[in-house]
């Protein structure tokens, strides 16, 4: 299979996942239990991406010690809670990571 065809197939599958729920084929009123479950989608999807990106190393191990991303992410959480600012959180997070790296931690 050529790379271009593979790209198109992946694109079609991705678009299908995004578009199918908007087709109107679903019932007009979703059950209350389902709507309650949908409330948790952002938290339940984005949190694993965060923990995986921070904790899992390139060789598929989990790093608790000697992992500079961990304190940087912890500080970023604190800053996000205090400031509610994406920009400040990013700046402090990267400053912490690069600072720890620079000073040889």
């Amino acid at each position: 299979m050529s790379l271009f065809v593979l790209m198109c197939l992946c694109g079609a599958l991705t678009f299908s996942a995004r578009f199918l729920p908007l087709t109107g084929w679903l019932p007009a009123k979703l059950p209350a239990w389902f709507e309650r479950a949908m409330y948790f989608v952002p938290i339940a999807v984005l949190t694993p991406i965060i923990t995986h990106s921070v904790m899992v190393t390139a060789d598929s191990g989990i790093a608790f010690s000697d992992n500079l991303r961990l304190p940087a992410a912890g500080l970023a959480i604190l800053v996000a809670l205090l400031t509610r600012s994406v920009i400040i959180t990013l700046i402090v997070g990267f400053a912490c990571l690069w600072g720890l790296n620079y000073f040889g931690f």
Binding site: I43, L46, T47, A73, R84, T89, L90, F94
Partner: peptide
């Protein structure tokens, strides 16, 4: 480590 921007962005959105 520019890839660190991904979790940082999500932390900024989710934590509050």
């Amino acid at each position: 480590q520019l890839g660190f921007a991904v979790p940082l962005s999500f932390i900024a959105v989710l934590a509050p």
